[in-house]
């Protein structure tokens, strides 16, 4: 099999201007990946499948990964003009100070594809794509028209992560039910307070039951029975 760099240059030769970026993997597994620009992804995918030498005809695994936004504190050198009395005269002086600045690195949702070739019996090659953010721009192109095996897996990612796959023929929730809101695999997901607590002897469960009771306005639900 070609090395990942060779595959990258093959993609770039076949599709000029395709956004392909090599992401090294520091783990001993050595499974480095290629990050595709969503705009060219379908074309690249088709090339990988149909190229006679690469022939990645088998899309094994499709996964979502959630990368929430991170707040990063860093020291930034700032040059500013201050008024200061120098030798008894008020002057405009430029000085450089370091000041801490907080910046929020925007999060994103990532989708990872593991491709193998059944015809050439090689693989894997790892492809990844990222959404712009985690809230409103979560569209990524679907590869289901190219590999049917993505059908249920993309539905699962839509369900559990909230990535919207454009071009998917049947994009519905897969595991959660129809009216369900939110996406449980996101890292900031909070369990809804809709459990029926059963009387158990555990303090933590009893504490949760008490919190639940307080949240619903002190009305004891049947079966919420802390100490009933």
């Amino acid at each position: 099999m070609k090395s990942i760099e060779e595959i990258k240059s093959a993609i770039e030769a076949a599709i000029p201007g395709a956004g392909v970026e090599l992401i090294p993997n520091p783990s001993p597994s050595g499974q480095h990946s290629l990050r595709l620009a969503p705009a060219d992804a379908v074309e690249v995918a088709r090339f990988l499948r149909d190229d006679a030498e690469l022939a990645f005809d088998f899309l094994s695994n499709v996964t979502g990964v959630d990368w929430p936004g991170k707040e990063i504190t860093e020291k930034v050198k700032v040059t500013r003009t201050v008024t200061r009395i120098v030798d008894g005269v008020e002057q405009q002086v430029e000085e450089t100070v370091e000041e801490p600045r907080k910046r929020v690195e925007p999060g994103c949702l990532e989708v990872v594809y593991h491709l193998f070739s059944m015809a050439k019996k090689h693989g894997p090659i790892v492809l990844r794509m990222r959404t712009v953010n985690r809230t409103d721009q979560v569209e990524l192109p679907s590869v289901t028209p190219i590999w049917r095996s993505a059908e249920f897996q993309e539905r699962e990612i839509f369900d559990l992560y909230g990535v919207v796959f454009t071009g998917h023929p049947d994009l519905r929730r897969l595991l959660m039910w129809k009216g369900f809101k939110d996406h449980p695999m996101r890292r900031d997901y909070v369990d809804p307070d809709d459990f029926e607590y059963e009387p158990t002897a555990h303090d933590s469960v009893l504490a949760r039951a008490a919190a639940h009771k307080a949240a619903i306005g002190g009305v004891a639900q049947k079966g919420t029975g802390a100490g009933e």
Binding site: P26, S29, Q31, S60, N61, T63, V112, H114
Partner: peptide, 24 residues
């Protein structure tokens, strides 16, 4: 505690390809 990185491992399970994908 594995070092940061990722790996996809798969075997031929009786029902087909069973794979685990891990990011550390």
């Amino acid at each position: 505690r594995p070092k940061p990185g990722e790996a996809y491992g798969r075997i031929e399970a009786p029902k087909g390809e069973l794979g685990f994908y891990l990011i550390s």
